[in-house]
């Protein structure tokens, strides 16, 4: 009897430990993508009695959309400033000395509960030996204006879910679309958040550098970003998913929609950008045909993601 119980338990253990292990879902969707939750310091500068520090996710500025928190501390009083006007302007200088910027919030907002100035920057490229980003900051305290210009490092964004694209619309304007969420997609309905920005052509001659009127960008309002996600892998035959929703602007100024990813792997978010009058400014409609063995054609406005 005891032997038999032993025998049964022995095979029981042998079989319940499967031949092949089941996939761990959470680690499966994390193999490519790392999700960052923590804000930590990217840079800090000292100006007179003030210490300025900027925090971003993972303590790094990446190409693409970056949300950041800026704090100014008076090192004498050890108090942080909360009534200042703070301006933020990133400028890139390329190898032949031309300056340009990227979509950003120029006048930072003060978040009184969390006690920081909040802003964003959509860096259009990462720092290289020949192209450097420089931050031009200004703030006021006791009616005095302080300005800072410091070099920063922008790194390449490895997470393709935070990719961005730049293009010229049929209205001749220069546009930027940057993915903001999901950082780490799931095989599920994902809320897709993107920012759409436009470069404001300067109307006046450039003043003293850095003249913010030369580097002005605005958040595009009341557009619609039509979405058709598909898998580019030829063997997936232009596979798509159901129940996706086009991106519409929300109160936060960003564009929110729904993307369903039916499996992990490479996906292309095919977009068509429509203005408030229903005109398509960029993007082509893609085929909905199922074409096994043939890579699906992408819209001329698209962002590739991978998870």
């Amino acid at each position: 009897m005891k032997k038999s119980i032993f025998f049964v338990t022995a095979i029981l253990i042998a079989v319940t430990s499967c031949t092949l292990d089941k996939t761990d879902y959470e680690s499966e969707i994390s193999t490519i993508v790392t999700e960052h939750f923590e804000y930590s310091e990217v840079v800090s500068f000292n100006k007179n009695d003030y210490q300025i520090s900027i925090e971003a996710l993972n303590g790094t500025f990446y190409k693409g959309f970056n949300d950041f928190r800026l704090k100014i501390i008076n090192t004498q009083t050890n108090e942080s400033l909360n009534t200042s006007e703070v301006t933020f302007l990133p400028v890139i200088t390329n190898y032949n000395g031309n300056n340009s910027s990227c979509p950003h919030r120029y006048n930072l907002d003060y978040n009184s509960t969390e006690e920081y100035y909040s802003g964003y920057a959509v860096f259009t490229s990462y720092s290289t030996d020949s192209e450097n980003w420089k931050l031009h900051l200004s703030f006021t305290d006791n009616d005095q204006i302080y300005t800072i210009a410091e070099e920063i490092i922008v790194e390449e964004q490895i997470n393709m879910n935070l990719n961005m694209t730049t293009f010229t619309g049929s209205d001749g304007e220069q546009y930027f679309i940057a993915l903001i969420a999901p950082q780490k997609p799931r095989i599920a309905e994902n809320e897709l958040v993107a920012g759409i920005y436009r470069y404001d052509q300067p109307s006046d001659e450039a003043g003293t550098f850095p003249d913010p009127s030369q580097f002005s960008y605005s958040e595009v309002s009341d557009y619609t970003l039509l979405l058709d996600p598909r898998m580019p892998e030829p063997s997936m035959g232009n596979h798509s998913s159901p129940n996706n929703e086009d991106l519409l602007q929300d109160d936060d100024g960003l564009y929110h929609g729904i993307v369903n990813y039916t499996m992990t792997g490479n996906w292309t978010l095919n977009f068509r950008m429509q203005n408030q009058y229903g005109e398509i400014l960029k993007g082509t409609e893609v085929s909905t045909e199922f074409t096994p063995g043939i890579e699906g054609t992408r819209s001329d406005l698209h962002i590739d993601i991978l998870f």
């Binding site: 499966e28 892998e233 499996m263 992990t264």
Partner: peptide, 20 residues
């Protein structure tokens, strides 16, 4: 009951495609 599928792209160095 659990069942998985994992598709392999033609270029095997690419990311596999997984779903339940």
């Amino acid at each position: 009951s659990t069942a998985e599928m994992r598709m392999y792209p033609q270029d095997r160095s690419e990311r596999t495609m997984f779903a339940y």
